[in-house]
């Protein structure tokens, strides 16, 4: 069976679900962040596949912007985690309950 757009889309959704599982089930802030990166990459894969099979380069430009925004997001997010760790000495979501009702 020839590999087509659907193959790439299914792989992308599986990758997205793996990332979502990490975000939902893991308790370490850094691993949650890695799950977020996985989800962004799954979206990138879907966009590149759409771009390829529709003969339209706009999808790849979108991926370029997503990569840039993800890099900025990682820089700010990791700075936040470092600041948080300095104040609370923990990177676990279960220990951060100040805002819990």
């Amino acid at each position: 069976m020839e590999v087509g757009l659907n193959h790439y889309l299914i792989l992308s959704s599986a990758l997205f679900c793996a990332g979502l599982l990490g975000v939902l089930l893991r308790r370490n802030l850094l691993i949650i962040y890695m799950g977020l990166e996985l989800m962004l990459n799954a979206a990138n894969l879907a966009l590149v596949a759409f771009s390829r099979f529709n003969n339209n380069l706009d999808g790849q430009v979108m991926v370029f912007f997503i990569i840039t925004v993800a890099a900025a997001e990682v820089a700010v997010g990791l700075a936040l985690i470092v600041a948080l760790y300095r104040k609370r000495q923990t990177a676990h979501t279960e220990d951060l309950t100040s805002l819990k009702f």
Binding site: L5, F50, R52, F53, N54, N55, N56, Q60, F64
Partner: peptide, 19 residues
């Protein structure tokens, strides 16, 4: 999903940069 025709684009640096 809109997969139409034979894919023939190339995501080369030149095309992407111009866009």
């Amino acid at each position: 999903s809109g997969a139409g025709g034979y894919p023939r684009i190339e995501g080369s640096t030149f095309e992407l940069g111009r866009l």
